[in-house]
Design a protein around this nucleic acid. Structure first.
Lengths: 163, 163
DNA sequence: ATTAAAACCTAGTAATCTACTAGGATATAT
DNA sequence: ATATATCCTAGTAGATTACTAGGTTTTAAT
């Protein structure tokens, strides 16, 4: 089964859009610096997310990405599926040909597990993540850190504080 | 998260012991030919299973491995843990330092998922697998195939049929 | 005692995949 | 015109997996 940074990054980045994207499109450069994900890697992930119609792009200065649907209608499972991370615990992609063309002894166990995982991730929307205490507090801390970083930086930081 | 053939092979092999090991120890050569898993790879997996006290070995001719506990007390989660380290969907091994030392936005999501998976696999014993219809029917088919293979083989097959 | 069957051990390795870099082309607000 | 952004393709270091190779030790059977 696969669940690596690819899928985790995709969900984290989509959650970033959910948290910061209310006013307008968010550039991947912003997501990259906030969530500590390589910009070029994000570009590749968002190409897939766009192909699956989970985000829309706006090109040119001031552009970026926005979510195509309301937070309530975007589920974690979709995001992971979109970036090609098959959440599948079987060794045969569910084809039941794991033992030289026939079904291996444990096939159904892994198929059941895959179902459980998919159900779990299909029940969680971006909206429910945004509302959760965990995400709220981490997001608050990230905003705080960003503020302090810009404060320690140059004059532009003062304007950031005022707005 | 990790769930590859390593963990799947381990569970399949342990299930093979559960199905065939009532009379005495089972050699890895037998498991290898029945379940189509490389012998040397099995040896490496069973070294770990033995270290975790899930199996006992008997050396010398007629030797092999037997389960250390009754089927009811061996859970799939233990087996995977023994060879795979951990079924963990977080990127930080549960340390919550996934975002440059701090907790990333989605950490709790993956931690929750890991819990769910672990619970699922902790509830399934070798005994319950052996009793399941799926395993029963696949096991019956494997015994049948083995019988036919030995029948098509040499004289020894006749003795196998009689016993 | 010899032989053979088994566990036990260690090192190496081809193939695969991940996460990423590099270096652009294209679109568009200012 | 310029800068900012998406968009696109190719390549690649490093890690991991699944396995092979080549032994040694133990022990039942002859």
């Amino acid at each position: 089964m696969r669940l690596t940074t690819k899928g985790r990054y995709a969900v984290t980045a989509m959650l970033d859009l959910a948290l910061y994207g209310e006013q307008g499109p968010i550039s991947l450069a912003d997501v990259s610096s906030r969530q500590d994900i390589s910009l070029s890697y994000l570009e590749q992930l968002f190409a897939k997310l766009r192909r699956k119609d989970l985000v829309q792009s706006v090109r040119g200065p001031g552009g970026g990405y926005r979510l195509t649907k309301p937070l309530e209608e975007i589920y974690v499972a979709e995001i992971i599926d979109a970036v090609d991370e098959r959440v599948d615990a079987t060794g045969c992609a569910g084809n039941a040909d794991c033992h030289g063309g026939t079904t291996c002894l444990t096939h159904h166990l892994w198929a059941d597990l895959s179902d459980k995982i998919h159900h779990f991730l299909s029940d969680i929307s971006l909206a429910s993540l945004v509302q959760s205490n965990n995400v709220q507090s981490i997001s608050a801390r990230q905003r705080q850190a960003e503020l302090e970083a810009s404060f320690a930086g140059d004059k532009i930081s003062l304007r950031a504080l005022e707005s």
